[in-house]
Amino acid sequence: MGFDYGKYIRPGKLPHIWCPGCGHGIVMKGLIRAIDSVGFSKDMTSIVSGIGCASRLPGYVDFCTLHTTHGRGVAFATGIKMAKPEMNVICVGGDGDGVAIGGNHFIHACRRNIDITYLIMNNNIYGMTGGQFSPTTPTGAKASTTPYGNPDPPFDIAKLAIGAGATFVARGTAFHAAQIDKLLAEAMRHKGFSVVEILDSCPTTYGRRNKYKSVIEMMNHLKDVAVPLSAAEKMTAEQLRGKVITGVLYKENKPEYASEYRKLVERVQAG
């Protein structure tokens, strides 16, 4: 009935470091279920991350795991995939890691369409360093470095991914836990660069500054703003104001980078 996460969690590593009510644990469970459902072997799966709360995920799971430098996860993952294309490569991280300091690696991985699944846990804040605003913090929101409200406009990660050439882009939320593994499994089955953004919450450094009274209010917020793509298609722009569309937002089949490069190698070697 329940899922046996113990099969994939490294012995002795729980409880994890994430704060009470942080959604990262929910997302990690979704990732584990997704890997299990697509049948990736532990030995042939590499999980790579950058720096930040979300990037601590690889330490808990029993695969070939690589916790790298801030924002660079996708670039390390690219090296792994190019050197050993038969490995399943998954990159995980947060919003600051992925689209601020790692933004360049992110858009170029999208452009190459290299077969990596990139899971971004977007909690709209730099949690680990104490709640500074990130590139996805809403305008006006309070953060430790926006005491008068955030003057910056935020990125839409999914639009950024689509614009940069990712061939699979999906979005879910930590509240909609049962959907997370479905989105991730489809992303992993997709041949190409797949981006799955999971809207997440940071009660500790975002919630308390932005008038969320509890973890539950933050979870309810995720529940309230999420609109499945099928429903959104029937809604007006006015009705969609303030909402976030979830589901598989974009999918197309295009040549995958690592396998195209192996074809190039075969061509050169054939003379």
């Binding site: 790579v48 670039a75 390390f76 090296g79 050197a83 490995m87 690696h105 490069y261």
Partner: peptide, 20 residues
């Protein structure tokens, strides 16, 4: 592979080396 920047190139090299 020609990477998007110098930092990414160094990262990719380390990732590749980890595969042996």
């Amino acid at each position: 592979i020609q990477m998007e920047d110098e930092i990414g190139a160094m990262a990719a090299v380390i990732g590749a080396s980890l595969t042996g």
